[in-house]
Design a protein around this nucleic acid. Structure first.
Length: 260
DNA sequence: GTTGAGCGTT
């Protein structure tokens, strides 16, 4: 029965925002309110959730009315075990509108220079991607939107090893993540191979096309093969892989962010 | 049913 985050940001001009990290995915504002309210006047609690799934993203924003109370809450609740997990409480730095925050207090709208000062950290949410790939593909949105999202993800997720459609990585490579030094050593050896192309999949001498005409799998058309496995324009190339678009025609497209 | 670095909604 909490109206936190129901009607947008109330009055954040004189509030002190705290960022609560490492909370469980099931922790709600109601669970955090009694904890934080003990140390001061909590004016609002907001837990960002996924727009598609509605699940919590694992962190929350708690806004206090006074700075000293917020400071006390940080010192008191930082490291506290909530719901079996150690949370991290700290002052929020960035707001939705890039507000200038001084020790947690919003002073004034800030020039972008401050905003760009911080390098954007890549956040990987494979879970969301999973849901998006399954739930959003059926909606058949406009392609411009798809491209937009793709570019957005490229900018945020560019730290990731995989670029768009990478080849299957070997399990050994997967284990290497986390070892920086050894990775360097390994890279030194393989440097002699090539240093220009990050990925070099030597085109193994493909055996004869296929003398066996009676291949059990005849679902592949020759046109698809000639593309080296890459089909940048699956627009109307292979209708076999795509179901009828008429299925995705949903009368309600409210999912799109068109409605403001 | 899953997950775990991070900075937010009308």
């Amino acid at each position: 029965m909490s109206h936190f985050g129901r009607s947008g940001p109330p009055d954040i001009t004189d509030t002190y925002s705290l960022l609560v990290l490492n909370i469980t995915f099931r922790t709600t504002a109601d669970d955090l309110f009694p904890l934080f309210d003990k140390y001061g006047k909590v004016v609002d609690i907001f837990i960002p959730r996924d727009r598609r799934t509605g699940d919590s993203r694992g962190f929350a924003f708690v806004r206090y009315k006074y700075a000293d109370e917020a400071q006390k809450a940080v010192e008191r609740l930082d490291g506290r075990v909530v719901d079996g997990r150690e949370i991290t409480v700290q002052f929020a730095k960035y707001g939705p509108n890039a507000e200038r925050i001084h020790k947690g207090r919003i002073i004034e709208p800030v020039p972008r220079s401050r905003y760009r000062s911080r390098s954007r950290s890549p956040r990987r949410r494979h879970r969301d991607d999973h849901y998006r790939d399954r739930d959003y593909r059926k909606r058949s949105r406009s392609r411009s939107v798809e491209r937009y999202e793709r570019e957005r993800y490229r900018g945020r997720d560019r730290d990731s090893r995989r670029r768009s459609r990478t080849y299957s990585v070997s399990p050994e490579y997967s284990k290497d993540r986390g070892r920086g030094r050894y990775d360097d050593e390994r890279r030194s050896r393989s440097r002699s191979v090539d240093s220009a192309s990050p990925v070099r999949h030597s085109p193994s001498p493909r055996r004869s096309p296929s003398p066996a005409k009676d291949s059990p799998l005849r679902g592949e058309s020759p046109g698809r093969r000639s593309r080296d496995g890459r089909s940048p324009t699956p627009r109307s190339a292979s209708p076999q892989g795509r179901r009828a678009a008429s299925y995705s025609q949903s009368p309600r497209n409210s999912d799109v962010d068109l409605c403001s």
